[in-house]
Design a protein around this nucleic acid. Structure first.
Lengths: 341, 341
DNA sequence: TGTTAGCACTCATATCAATCGAGTGCTAAT
DNA sequence: ATTAGCACTCGATTGATATGAGTGCTAACA
């Protein structure tokens, strides 16, 4: 078992390391932190902490560096998750409530705020469109060769897809979209497949040819709705972080984040009901071994959630980041739920 | 005046430097390139080329490095702008003609191809929406609180903007949008201002209250259409380039590119009718002094153009990049012009 | 028994001189 | 005009040496 004193020493070491990025030695701790014991004692405790797996030594005769386990303990039992200041709150509120009504803009704005307040990389997803229920659907002719398919979810998110069609009569389009809506309304969008679209044929037998023409186009359009839309901001902050001063190391992170699919797997795994902190190897992704990820979810009307994540070096100010993630996550829930008032 | 031999020596130096990123010396040239003269002769010529401003010497007793002027001469009179291979052409054709009908997707795809083929950063803009002429306009109710404003340009680009409105009757919306279209059709979108919208009031006097309500909302929506939409791809390639191995240097580029406004100024300046190569200081932007930019434009139906740019280190394969930019630019013109057939 | 002073030891980092070698400019011979 | 030759420059490499921050261990102490 770990003693109270060891805990305080570990805390001092991690704080110091977060500040300085340098392996920390026993003398530094005894001088900078009022623990009331000599460096020799700390030295002994540090040896024990290393044996317990909370610290690591880059090489003999260098100071100690926290291990993933050390950070874990630090986060679980030492970090002070204070609430953010009133000023920050006001800025966030005004930026997110400032007449934004597109889900994507809102996510982008939230990611921007997150990355500015944390100086780290922030990613915000919007609720998986696929999982939402269809509330409205319209086909609008925009030109002789194009039709706009508009879908609105019950959570108020609007999605437009352009369809290339050479057969576009608004009267027919209205008829088709009304009919589709009548039997698809309330369905989650992922459930809308060829089979359900085929009902169109039954209901609109007089438009058989048109429906035959439309179905493959619709199918392709719906297929394109897979995947989570991610909005990442602050990527360049990576480049200011000591751990990634070498471009090659930064590139690993960039390359990972470039393909949204990479993160999607991770996003699907994180629990959807509370804030999560993953440290280094806990993330389970080799290229992110040097990072920590703090993630949270927000809900729209209590359902169907979007995700917020902040990615940075393990050596980050967990207390601060957590409180910002929390606040923005809550604000986003509110704003999203309010959008379709 | 510069002699033929000096030209050939300069060419050899620049080729070698592009390959190796190392200052090149006279012996290297005399051994690697069959110029038929000794290193001493080359040495003399190099001294002259330096005096003429085409070469620079990082320090006495190091090899020479091309100056911006040197690159300029190289590009103007030595680079072989061959056409790209048939295989590349096929890939580009198939990727860009593969049933993409959204301008933004097309631009994104083109940027991706560019960056993959050049291993550099690529940015593609879509024709400035503002400068296009309005061809169609519709207001669609999507929920009790939201209306979708759809605008189609004569170049076939579709733009949707959501409007927050608490007064949404589709019958009225149809009336309003029909009326608006009747006197705005053919106008460039940037010309649509409050004054022109006010005509609505004259024409729809029975809907005065609604029009009063709508006007400020429309004005805000139209204001949001300023600016060029840019799609950048391959940013992470920066991190593989020797010149930017130091994260701090890469960050300068990233920070510059992060804000589309920065590039917009530059984009507005480049001539709109042919391929342009800007080298280092020619770009006129301090943070890009170590870079070269190759840019081109594509036309949609001979009008209203979008831009293509590739950004990399001065030490790039100009011949190759130029031919790729050219080919993609032409293809994009074709595809864009064909979209609204 | 826990704490601490003291000390030998380790090892990355800094320092400095010596050397190397790629490159130059200049001169004199071809 | 070209080139061989040579002295010279100067960054990079090497290696020996010192520095110092850090450790672990032991023995003395409270």
């Amino acid at each position: 078992m770990i003693s109270e004193r060891q805990l305080r020493i570990l805390e001092a070491i991690i704080s110091d390391f977060i500040d300085t990025a340098q392996p920390v030695g026993s003398r530094t701790i005894s001088k900078k932190y009022p623990l009331g014991v000599s460096s020799a004692t700390i030295r002994n405790e540090m040896a024990d902490l290393e044996e317990l797996g909370y610290l690591e030594q880059p090489h003999t005769s260098s100071g100690r560096v926290p291990s993933d386990l050390g950070y874990r303990l630090y986060v679980d039992s030492m970090v002070n998750f204070h609430s953010i200041g009133i000023d920050e709150k006001e800025i966030i509120q005004s930026m997110l409530r400032n007449r934004i009504i597109e889900a994507s803009d809102l996510a982008k704005q939230a990611a921007k705020l997150l990355s500015e307040f944390t100086n780290l990389v922030a990613i915000v997803t919007i609720p998986k469109f696929n999982k939402c229920k269809l509330a409205n659907l319209k086909l609008i002719k925009v030109s002789d060769t194009r039709v706009l398919l508009i879908m609105v979810t019950d959570t108020g998110i609007v999605k437009n897809i352009q369809l290339a069609m050479s057969y576009t009569d608004q009267f027919i389009l209205d008829k088709v979209s009304d009919t589709m809506l009548s039997f698809l309304s309330g369905e989650t969008i992922e459930k809308i497949d060829v089979r359900s679209i085929l009902k169109l044929k039954d209901k609109l037998q007089n438009l058989g040819t048109f429906v035959d023409y439309l179905i493959p186009i619709l199918r392709d359009a719906l297929k394109s709705l897979n995947g989570t839309e991610q909005y990442a901001e602050g990527l360049s902050h990576i480049l200011s972080i000591q751990e990634f001063a070498d471009s090659e190391k930064a590139k690993v992170i960039f390359d990972f984040l470039r393909d949204p699919k990479n993160l999607e797997i991770f996003l699907d795994e994180i629990s959807s009901d509370q804030l999560s902190i993953k440290i280094g190897s806990e993330i389970g992704i080799d290229s992110l071994d040097a990072c920590s990820i703090i993630s949270s979810t927000y809900k729209v009307d209590g359902k169907s959630d979007g995700k917020i994540i902040v990615l940075g070096p393990k050596r980050m100010d967990y207390g601060n980041v957590v409180s910002i993630v929390n606040y923005i996550s809550n604000t986003l829930s509110d704003v999203f739920s309010g959008i379709n008032l």
